[in-house]
């Protein structure tokens, strides 16, 4: 079970976290969850996380800052953005971490399989 991908799901909406966690668990991922930016950074600091699905609008620091700080700390976590903000603009600097428009998902994601294939693709890069 060591080869399980460690996936962090960050969202302030508990139901959403639960749904994604359920799906990815079923798909054989090792799931970590967080409901705020600060919590996410703490989880990443304590555990070895492969990838994270991050909501943008979070209480406290937002998704963008989580990604920035994580990279600033030298974490190698790969990020996907899962947001309800229709006017989200991806900061140019994120492409340096391999975070491009392909990995920005607007809610609602009707078929979670899309997220899964994106995570796999992101990790394969």
């Amino acid at each position: 079970m060591n080869d399980k991908i460690a996936l962090l799901i960050v969202d302030d909406e508990e139901c959403l976290v639960r749904n994604l966690a359920a799906y990815f668990e079923d798909e054989g991922f090792k799931i970590f969850t967080a409901h705020s930016g600060e919590e996410a950074l703490a989880v990443m600091a304590e555990n070895k996380i492969d990838a994270a699905i991050v909501d943008l609008r979070l209480p406290g620091i937002n998704g963008n800052e989580v990604i920035e700080q994580s990279h600033a700390r030298g974490n190698k976590v790969k990020f996907l953005i899962h947001t309800g903000s229709t006017d989200y603009k991806l900061p140019e600097s994120f492409s340096a971490f391999g975070l491009t428009g392909n990995y920005v998902f607007l809610k609602p994601v009707v078929d979670m399989a899309r997220l899964k294939s994106a995570v796999l693709q992101l990790l394969a890069e």
Partner: peptide, 17 residues
Amino acid sequence: AHEINNPLGIMMQSAQN
């Protein structure tokens, strides 16, 4: 949109689950 899309997401992802 944000407020609607979140519940829509929950709804559909729940259905999928």
